[in-house]
Structure formats: C-alpha cells, structure tokens
Design a protein around this nucleic acid. Sequence first.
DNA 1: ATACAATACCCCCCAAAGGGGGTTTTTATC
DNA 2: GATAAAAACCCCCTTTGGGGGGTATTGTAT
Lengths: 206, 206
Amino acid sequence: MNHIIRVAIVDDHKILTEGLQGLITGSGLATVVSVTHSASDCRNSLGFCKPDVLLLDVSLPDMSGLDFCKEIKTQFPEIKILALTTHNEYSIVKQMLDNGASGYLIKNAMTEEILAGIQAVAAGKTFLSHEIDILMKRPKETHIWLSQREQELLKLVAEGLTNGEIAERIFLSPETIKSYRKNLLLKLDAKNTAVLVRIALEKKLI
Amino acid sequence: MNHIIRVAIVDDHKILTEGLQGLITGSGLATVVSVTHSASDCRNSLGFCKPDVLLLDVSLPDMSGLDFCKEIKTQFPEIKILALTTHNEYSIVKQMLDNGASGYLIKNAMTEEILAGIQAVAAGKTFLSHEIDILMKRPKETHIWLSQREQELLKLVAEGLTNGEIAERIFLSPETIKSYRKNLLLKLDAKNTAVLVRIALEKKLI
DNA sequence: ATACAATACCCCCCAAAGGGGGTTTTTATC
DNA sequence: GATAAAAACCCCCTTTGGGGGGTATTGTAT
C-alpha cells in the first residue's frame, strides 16, 4: 500500500475535529477528505469523498453511532471504521465491533495511537486503544452480557413498567417476568430495582 | 487590559487539548501556559504558571471537576475558570457556576465561541455557550431542583437502600423517608423507583 | 407580619417486588 | 447425541413500595 490514506471524520465536538485534522494532516501519513458533525452530513459526504478510513464518534447528535456504523458498513463495505469515543464499557465496544468497526480508540488516547490506529485499520488490520485492549482481554466472567430477552426486559423495567405491564406488553406470563427479573438481579449483582437500573445505565447495557 | 491572556488547560482528552492549544496559540489573543490531563497535575502546575484563565473539564479522571473548581477558587481566587464539557444539563451548569466558574462552554461549540469565552472571562465577565445560555434562560419550572436532603436521599435510594436502612443511616423515621420518596416521585414525575433512578442519572442530579 | 419552602413526622391500605423453591421446551454448540 | 444456555412457566410467603390522606416546626424572604 503506497498511497496516502484518505480519512473522513464525524464528530460533533468541533474543537476535537480540528485537533484531529491538524494532527492527521501534519503527520503526512494521511489526508483528511471530509469533516462532518452529524450522521446525516456524513452520509451525504461519503459517496463522493471516498475515504479509506472513517473516524466515527459513538455519540452523534442525530443518531446512535452504533446504528450508523452498521448502516455505513452495508452501504460502503470497503470503508474501514475506526470508532472514537469516551466510553470504555465492554458492551459498547463489543456492539461496535459486532456492527463492523475495525478499531476502537478512546478519546484520551495518545496522539500516536490515533495515527497507529488509522494505519492499522487502513491496512485491513484491527486496532484497539491500549486501554480497550486490556478491557476486552479481561476474563469473560468479569463482563456482564445479557441475552436479547433480558436486555429487552431491563429496558422495560427502567421505563417503570410493572411485571404485569411488561407481561401484557410482550405477551408473557407475569410469573415469567418475575423469573427474569430475579435473574437480572443476580447477574448484575443488584439487591433491588433501584440498583439494577443504576448499573444498567452505568454499564450502558440499555 | 493589554497583555496576552495566559491560559491553562485541564482535560484528559489529549487530542482535544492539542486542538485547543493550536487554536488558542494560533489566534494570537492568548498563550497556553499549561496543559495537564488530571486534577493533580493541574494543581501542581497552577502555582508557578500563573494563568489568567483555566479551561476546566468537568469529568477529570482523578476527581470531579465540580469539586476541583471549588478547590481552585479558594486557593487561587484570581484565576477565572471556564468550564468545558459535553454535558448540557441544568444541574451541572448550575453547580459549576455556584462553585465559582466564570463561564461554561460545551465541547461542540464553535471555535469562535471558545476564543470569545476566554476573552470575556479574562475581562471579568461571565460567558455561556449559546446553547447553555438558552438552557439557563428557560423558565424555572422546566428545571428540576432538589433540596439538599432530597438529593441526599435520592443518592441513597439509587444505592439500593430501603426506607428502613436510609432511616437508620441518617437518623430519621422511616415514615419521614417515605414522605421524601413520595415527594421525589412527584417532583421528578416518576411512577416508581426504577424511573426515579433513571431520571436522576439522566439529568445528572446525583 | 405572613407566606413559603424545607424539614420531619404519622396513619391506613393494597399493590408490587423479592427470596425461596421448582419444571419444560427449544435452540445452539460441541 | 450429549450438554448447556436461553426462554417460558408456576407456587408460596414476606418485605418493601406507593397512593391517599394528614400535622408541626423551622428559617427566610417579602
């Protein structure tokens, strides 16, 4: 590979994008072909600016970066996506990689890491920030991972529905909901609903 | 005032600080005398770098920016603090200003706003990002504001304590706790504890 | 002076949550 | 074809929470 890497950036933090742009251009390794601050603007620009790598923030103002990642990957599978966020939660990283991202950088990363990430991803490799790498390599037991149903239920609980209401909503017996809740309390090591909701939000499980 | 403004920056997002540094230095209006990525590093540098303005992130890795703001203001009352964050929640802004900050910028602000903010704050004025200004000017009724006791209670509820446990902890009757909780449900418009905790975390009330 | 918000307290009653124990069927995965 | 995890279901019993009503005492701002 001997051409200059074409990089696009989507992030609503304008100062950050300026910093990134300077950093990338200054390095001589890559050129910034597009800087946008929302998913819709980015979507419009991708067609003709043809980047090799897209630096994507997970929290965009108009839609979830997770969903946007999936969308881009189906429309432009050749574009490598490098997620760039503040979250260092297992579940977010996992979902991002599942949705087709090639790498994941945390925003407090060293600047060298960003350049290394762009190069690695452009070369078809995967790349994780040091901190994220450690996070993902931790034994599976320390991570909380919920089944689809459990996640669905957790959302409804956090919305304040009672067992009866949840049962009606998803056409199950209230007793089943009770079992799921008991299991969620166990899994998330929560002594009651208050803690359950807190953990769910803190670990960004819902 | 005819000297160049001396600016210090604390923010753990290294890319952002680089971007900021370039932006500020490039403008010719101010000079960056210190860039640190944690409260402790910043604390050590403030003594001799003597900044006029400190750009302070609310979410520092080692302590809360809110507390750090208060600490700096008691130790170096002459330093003007300009908060720089992603949060646009009333309660956060309110607390920051109460703790002595002279201004509040959101990270997705236009770059010109940052320079304007630094100048305004250095000149002894207060400065708010456009978005924050609108937020703060909204009628008081749309904001949720809790008394100290209510906040204290809300924290304990979110930690999963029952009414009885809370009563023991803060030496009040369980009946009193019940009343407070009922009131919190009303104030935050929550139908039960699950929603109460969710709203509290989302609005960053605890 | 008085109105208001915050603080602290009390009763009744029923709905909901939580702890304990289970079973069965389906669907992956090895 | 065995194993395991996910999904769905059930009963008993106790504790906690939430809805409805209150009252009294502060301090403080108008």
